[in-house]
Design a protein around this nucleic acid. Structure first.
Lengths: 336, 336
DNA sequence: TTGTAAGCGTTATCAC
DNA sequence: GTGATAACGCTTACAA
């Protein structure tokens, strides 16, 4: 079935190509008889418009770009991204947009992707995940006036449209929960220093301690990465301290799993001797032993807000705020 | 920075727009002086071609489509897809293509996606995952001569380009391993009847039994779905049989986890009293207790083959075979 | 060698 | 109401 053009439909219905276009766009000022003739031909031959031509003409591609800057390998193992991608596809799809996903392996390839996706006008707008504290893309995007939205944070906070978890609230929520359970020595096993998500959860942790009148013990806060290994090693170290913690807030579920493993190896009973809470409510939380309590960040809500904010920009509809915060909630399981 | 067109570059360099195009395309027959003038202007003003116009003109968009027919919700929880998507992005990117991902929620929306992606010419080719035994899209795609590749299987096997795991081999590998470990009563907890992946692994399971001279016991083969719950319930049932199995081949890691849970609840020691093997080597396999042995399907290799086969079709280069099989390997852990 | 001009398939602005 | 016609930005004969 060779694809038909409006021109061919026009010839087949003995009208001008412009009329075919009008019929398709639902222009009211077209004779009912002609309209029917055209519709019949279209129905019979199955016309579908060429998106490329439409894009060129309308300056819109109907495609959103999602750029994450992790290597494909890291991406593959991270349930956050599959959930995010799936949700964005869903919400973009509902609004009539497609999703083009790109991964910026290294810093130097970021520029390439930026050129490839944005300046070539392949996409109508961009969703950027996890910007760096100093992200060289922001000024350029802003300068071009290109529609984009951040999932995460960028300073100054009003410079760009952004959607973020309430990471401070999440850190506080986990810590408060442990305090309510009677814990006094609570450690925070963090990821890298300087990453907003880690710093914010740390801030929330501090707030909760302060509000409960507990003092902040620097030896109970350890910075590292997002790996299971980091959780394991750090837990081992913490347990060798003279006054080891009785509860752990781990910056990520994987880190929490590592901590759990270290504690179990020492025969500690969980959650009696050690309570552990992670973040993200990863799919595997319910399958580990004991099932891991976790602060669930609402990835679907994050995706929905980001997609909506982006599409509103593209369609030049009003966007009420620059920054949106999506609340978290605690999923209680057996580990704490 | 308003985007520049070739026309504007042409004016700035006092040449014709055609010459600018030639310079950009590396056409040899252009005067070195003019070429330098054009290049200087491009360098200075930062020209990037408009992909939409190029698409229209060249009839190529440089975008591959990936269509999975699961709901976004299912997608989100499945590590197979995030790995697959990440790998396709990687390999497509290396060949200069972008990836557009769509999820076909329900059967009725499949047609919509098909129209939206393919007939609108938004993508140059399609990667389809998990076709049904009778998939109405195949005849249409074939009829249109549209480049596409299947991840999975379709009958007759030579009708389409397809890339698949060696599921029969995987089923056999798991079963043989258990037989080598001394097991004689081995159950196969399957997914839905009629799904190629389940049927193939079943076939491999049978082959291994036969080759070892063990007889096939129908009461040890149970069909269901891919859920943890199915694994749990089925395991419970199997354990209540008069001669319960001592080893389990579970069609999916999640199903294996469910089986493991049922056995642990009954206080069985693993792998002594019950050995369990899953499929896919999901990220969580190493975090469950005991760590789950699993037959790893090589998703990256699958993605690589599929992407390459598709791109070769698009670029009208030769594709040596219609069907490609990617081997599996067993990842031994503590559960078997 | 270079420029002119004809498309690619739309949409939108003209006259009629 | 309807049909020419001019873009949209690019590639590529064809002329010069």
């Amino acid at each position: 079935m060779p694809e038909l053009t409006q021109n061919q439909i026009a010839k087949l219905s003995r009208v001008s190509q412009a009329t075919v276009s009008r019929v398709l766009r639902g222009d009211p000022r077209v004779n009912e008889e002609l309209r029917q003739r055209v519709l019949a031909v279209i129905e019979k031959h199955g016309y579908v418009p060429d998106a490329r031509a439409q894009s060129l003409r309308s300056q819109r591609t109907g495609i959103l770009g999602l750029v994450v800057h992790r290597s494909p390998r890291q991406l593959a193992r991270d349930p956050f991204f599959s959930t995010l991608i799936a949700a964005i596809i869903e919400f973009a799809g509902k609004a009539g947009y497609h999703l083009c996903v790109d991964a910026a392996r290294a810093v130097q390839s970021r520029r390439a992707i930026y050129e490839d996706l944005l300046r070539t006008r392949r996409v109508d707008g961009l969703i950027l995940v996890e910007p760096q504290t100093r992200d060289e893309r922001m000024p350029r995007l802003l300068e071009e006036g290109f529609p984009f939205v951040l999932i995460g944070r960028y300073e100054p906070i009003d410079a760009v449209y952004s959607v973020d978890n309430d990471n401070i609230g999440a850190g506080r929520m986990a810590t408060e929960y442990l305090i309510r359970k009677g814990h006094r020595r609570i450690a925070y096993i963090s990821g890298p220093r300087g990453l907003f998500v880690c710093e914010d959860r740390h801030a929330g942790y501090q707030q909760a301690l302060k509000e409960a009148g507990l003092c902040y013990a620097p030896e109970l806060v350890i910075w590292g990465d997002f790996s299971e290994e980091h959780g394991y090693r750090t837990m081992t170290r913490l347990l060798s301290q003279s006054a080891p913690p009785t509860a752990i807030v781990a910056v990520d579920d994987l880190v929490a799993i590592g901590a759990l493993r270290a504690a179990k190896e020492r025969g500690m009973s969980i959650p009696q001797q050690l309570a552990v809470i992670g973040f993200n409510d990863s799919p595997f939380c319910q399958y580990v032993d004991p099932p891991l309590s976790s602060v669930a960040v609402d990835i679907r809500a994050l995706a929905q807000m980001a997609t909506e904010v982006l599409i509103r920009q593209i369609e030049e509809r009003e966007v009420p705020q620059r920054r949106y915060i999506v609340p978290c909630h605690l999923v209680e399981r057996a580990s704490a």
